[in-house]
Nucleic acid binder design. Sequence first.
DNA 1: AACCTAAACTAATAGTATTAGTATTTTGGC
DNA 2: GCCAAAATACTAATACTATTAGTTTAGGTT
Lengths: 186, 186
Amino acid sequence: MTRRLSLSTESVVAAATQFVDRHGAEALTLAGIATQLGIKSPSLYNHVDGIGALRRLVALAAIEDLAEETRTAAMGRSGASGLRAIAHAYRQVARTRPGTYALIQVARPGDEAWEAASTRVLEPVLAALAGMGLEGEAAIHATRAVRSAIHGFVSLETTSGFGLNVDVDASFDMLVDVVVGGLEAR
Amino acid sequence: MTRRLSLSTESVVAAATQFVDRHGAEALTLAGIATQLGIKSPSLYNHVDGIGALRRLVALAAIEDLAEETRTAAMGRSGASGLRAIAHAYRQVARTRPGTYALIQVARPGDEAWEAASTRVLEPVLAALAGMGLEGEAAIHATRAVRSAIHGFVSLETTSGFGLNVDVDASFDMLVDVVVGGLEAR
DNA sequence: AACCTAAACTAATAGTATTAGTATTTTGGC
DNA sequence: GCCAAAATACTAATACTATTAGTTTAGGTT
């Protein structure tokens, strides 16, 4: 057949990413992506090592994007101000791309590239906390608190939603205030 | 064939619940449960309306259990003390049954039984917040903050884990302190 | 022009869920 | 106690998944 469009791992991952954000992570299948790319599903194995690897690559691109967005948001800010900026950038990414965000939430023990990217997400948070005087074990506890709060909120928001007709942005602002304020009070 | 063990919807759901907490929500299949029960998978349709319905029933039982546990934990306590008790009971349930907890985290729009159970989980939180003087819209925002923090923590804990060899119980205590303290300061 | 490689294909296998139709066992009414 | 009806199991078949093996073809390189 014609190899016209010169498929690559990148283009397959891009198609999958787009698909996942449109139709949800559960709906991702090799057959679906193959059809969308105009090929048959076994041909995908020339670019990607199966559905598991495809999911991982989509998630990896997403977490790297998340790291990039939060880092640039934190640039030029420090302490509480940096923390707020990170929180809002994080939520923004998750809202814009709920499917890929869901894909990030699976355990990948022993995956080096994954752990590197996770670290890059954590770094600006740790830096901001350091600017608030939190270091050592206290900083670890604080990071976990910050991650939990932000992830919990966007997770609930992007899956179930919160129900009730009350301003969700205001809720998020309030959560960030509570956490940042609570950490400052230490 | 023999109907010796008198299967029922309840026993199928119980088997699935046990399985999910042992092997993870992703591993749940009708064929697997059928084998475990000593029947063939199509026979399961006599008790349960397909894999989707089975997942829902497992999740429903889990969220009802969660509601029960948090409510009894909150009994006799009010305000911040009640909130802390609820938080720890919530985490306890999620840690004890990570598979079913994961199953709870999916959207079920328009499912009345589901919404009723969700409400029962929320009620003690709202009651505790009322004891702290939070009502109306402020209470809604506060509920979202509390849910986010607790869910975020146990979600990260039960899926990825937190990495690093730092006391996770202490982190949770600290998170609860931060949130409860932050809400009290309002 | 010949060749090699990348990337497509077809065919086949195994594991999902699900439906339809059949048989059997239990249960409930008489 | 018997017979009909309902419940529950079965087998067979369909339609999706993912995946592997083996084959063909198109493109670029020498």
